[in-house]
């Protein structure tokens, strides 16, 4: 039975990697108390999705999608790359806003540890 499952598993290993990275990111967001680490977790999560997109467009033996004289050339799908370019811009903006917030939080509270923030809020 394992023999029949394994090829399928390895055939799509890129997707499994994406899922694993995604889970690492999600774990960091939930488990880490430091706000910067949370943002890093978010970035890992987003990157996993980017990899997922990019790897989906790849074709074994495909070339870059540049117009050539050879009509039979196999090229990879360019659209996911373009989409992810946009998504990266979005992710960078999100990170920027997030980091700006963290700076403001540090200025206001003097800490960026979540549990300390909660304790301070509870005291007020």
């Amino acid at each position: 039975m394992i023999e029949t499952l394994l090829p399928g598993l390895f055939l799509r290993y890129n997707y499994y990697m994406a899922v694993i990275i995604m889970l690492i990111g999600l774990y960091a967001m939930i488990a880490k108390g430091n706000l910067i680490k949370k943002i890093i977790g978010l970035n890992i999560f987003q990157t996993a999705i980017f990899l997922f997109y990019i790897s989906s467009s790849d074709i074994i033996g495909g070339t870059a999608p540049i117009l050539t004289s050879d009509p039979a050339s196999v090229y990879v799908n360019p659209l996911p790359h373009v989409l992810i370019l946009t998504a990266i811009v979005v992710a960078v903006s999100t990170t920027a806003v997030g980091l700006a917030l963290v700076i403001r939080i540090y200025e206001a509270y003097g800490t960026i540890e979540e549990d300390e923030l909660i304790a301070m809020e509870a005291k007020e």
Partner: peptide
Amino acid sequence: RSLVSSFTYLVMGSVSACFILLGIG
């Protein structure tokens, strides 16, 4: 506290956007 609530909102919002992006993919 508006900063902290904004940060929470950002994290939750971004996660939700990631899920939507995955769905689109």
